[in-house]
Nucleic acid binder design. Sequence first.
DNA 1: AGGTCGACCTGGCAGC
DNA 2: TGCTGCCAGGTCGACC
Length: 272
Amino acid sequence: MPELPEVETIKRDLHEKICRDQFAFIKVFDSRVLANCTEKKLSKELAGEKIETVDRRGKAVIFRLSHQKFLVVHLKMTGQLIVGDGKEEKGKQTRIIFQLASGRNLFYNDQRLFGRLWVVKDLKEVNFLRAIGPEPLNGVVNPLWLTKQLKLRETPIKVLLLNQEFLAGIGNIYASEILFKAKINPKKRANRLRALEVESLYRSIVSVLKEAIDYRGTSMRNYRDSAGQKGRFIDRIRVYNREGEKCFICQTPITRIVQGARSTFFCRRCQK
DNA sequence: AGGTCGACCTGGCAGC
DNA sequence: TGCTGCCAGGTCGACC
């Protein structure tokens, strides 16, 4: 579910709300979400830990704690991190409740149980963080870097955008949206993009992700922010999940294809 | 090296 | 109403 803009929204809100608060008591309702520890170990490791910062890397939320320790949360498709004032009831999908010293609760909800949490001393202990590519919005990624990287890849550009070892944080919604904005056919091989297309792709990656952050993400189905609110970028979506509906530019019906077992949406006329 | 597919799960929705 | 099948924002590992 949550891609870079959704996770960034959650990260900013959590940093604002619970930074400097402290974990008090942790209750686990489904231990399948614990990637590298038991309920007992999680409670023991976190109890008394102060939250120094809340960060993001790709689609993961990273709580930096006192005593050189990190809580890493990957929300996968349906995970949510929601802050309550301490009076809210546990929901059907609540898998963990973190009670904070301030009396508030941090809920980890996850319908499909794909999400995972790690407690580590070193972020390199988390496999996907070791292999993850650069952040698209932090200045490392630029047209020159993109040009060099694309030259090395024969894979269809849509599939490459989903590869987290290439770039961190882009998922299925934004991959389609970025390529629509850049007017690039999702089936086009990465190394076949012309200089102008690479330039356009770079600008689209940055502008689509930034705009989606401004709108606090996209709520297709399950996504909610840390207050349980939906993201508003759904109103700015141009192609995702719009099969058969008219392209906003040329009125051609939007096409759905399958690439790497995932749906891709695009306009046959605008994206040559 | 790159691709494709199934597995991991629950639940919403369309169609019959 | 209720059943079946399909689909879902992510990733991993097996296999070709």
